[in-house]
Nucleic acid binder design. Sequence first.
RNA 1: GGUGGGUUGGCCGAGAGGCGAGGCAACGGACUGCAAAUCCGUGUACACGGGUUCAAAUCCCGUACCCACCUCCA
Length: 483
Amino acid sequence: MTLRLHDTATRDVRDFVPLEAGKAGIYVCGLTVQSEPHVGHVRSAVNFDVLRRWLTVSGYDVRFIRNVTDIDDKILAKGEAQGRPWFEIAYRMGRELDKALDAINVLPPTYEPAATGHIPEILELIAQLVARGHAYPAEDGSGDVYFDVRSWPAYGELTRQKVDDMEPEETVADPLVMARKRDPRDFALWKGWKKALEPETAAWPSPYGPGRPGWHIECSAMAAKYLGPAFDIHGGGVDLRFPHHENELAQSRAAGQQFAAYWLHNAWITTAGEKMSKSLGNSLLIPNVLERVRGIELRYYMVSAHYRSHVEFSFEALDEAAKSFRRIESFLDRVPPVVEEVAQRPSRNRLPGAFIAAMDDDLGTPAAIAVIHDTVREGNRILGAGESADAVAASVRAMLDVLGLDPADPAWGSSEAAADGKLSAAVDALVAGLLEERERARADKDWARADAIRDRIAGAGIAVEDTPDGPKWTLAASVEEGS
RNA sequence: GGUGGGUUGGCCGAGAGGCGAGGCAACGGACUGCAAAUCCGUGUACACGGGUUCAAAUCCCGUACCCACCUCCA
């Protein structure tokens, strides 16, 4: 069986056939770095990180490009509002995003190109489109350059929309802008510098006068630069299908490129039935969510739904997911730590067949997780029978690793782990004394006293379990109340 | 108006013609001094109304409600 993926362009699930055997080129639209990352923002990153890992495990040499849009109207407006340079805003938010993605073990892309670093490539592409008659500079001296939608009959092919069916634009359009366009649906490739409103740092020289790139063109230019005129997979959130991806496709094809062979789109994560707009407040920002659950638990929550399924975010569901994950972890804790060298990414053939089948079926992570739970149960059963479950644990870890969820992966914050280590050594020394006392009481069958000691330890947030090897303590996995 | 998607048991969340994914919660049982953890067991859920079929949560027709995109958006 081979990997099958859902392609938005054809609207079906079909075999993934790479353009070049053994290689996979992926371009994912990253974020416009204009505000702090929230739960919604990182879902896309997690979903495509899973795709990337699965392709890698399946033997592909993956080139994974995720761009960052570091200039747009909102970034400029924000800089203006804060009295700071726009590039400072973009850079700072970019770093926030990196931190958030690190916290949930999203691997860095092969390369992360930024729009402002590719002005020459963008201008070259625009020049090609103008030369081919698919783009034109506005004639009103604004310096804008537009893509000529009517010159490209295939326009709308990705989302199967006809230009004439699209929403009447009169409602939104600025008449001044409308006047520059041959068709209201034409979109900007290059935006002329508005001297009165925009800083000089936001303008680059061009044959059409100073200005900056439009939103869509950057992705076409950067995808071509790093992946070539034809590449395998283009990804992003569903909202990007139109207009962004539709426009990218039109630009690149009109310039004579084949562009992406597969289009993948992840669904939204919403709250209270609404999408997470920036106005919803801070509770869903990544650092805040990570005060409630660990990064690995947040990631588990995201991976436990299929990437094309809409998720209604709730802290209750997040807590449930965290508990579910701890079940897996506690099994892993029951077996001796694997001593093997830094676990190199497992190969497909080391994974259970049901897991492979689930992942190959359009990245069926929910079913894949079900296989993990089944395996965990089997492992617990074996341990209960007093036998070694090392092999089972290794299998569980291999599966978790594919999903970026191996608790032993050093990517899960080594500095924190070191601090935790010291702390737990200190706590262990203190708790050990109490536990000895309790063991004496138990030996005397003084249950009241034994339980009193256990209650006291529990009061400090530490749970005690009696195992065949004696008492063990763990931090009680209680979940904080409220949000 | 155009385009696409959704409605599954107390909750989350898969599946997409026949065998009850998985998790959380709950209830029984085993184990335990009692617990915890673990294991075993317990649910006749698929928005509504028709239809096709030996067989429908899954296919078809209709209805209701919800959502997304067509404007910046993961």
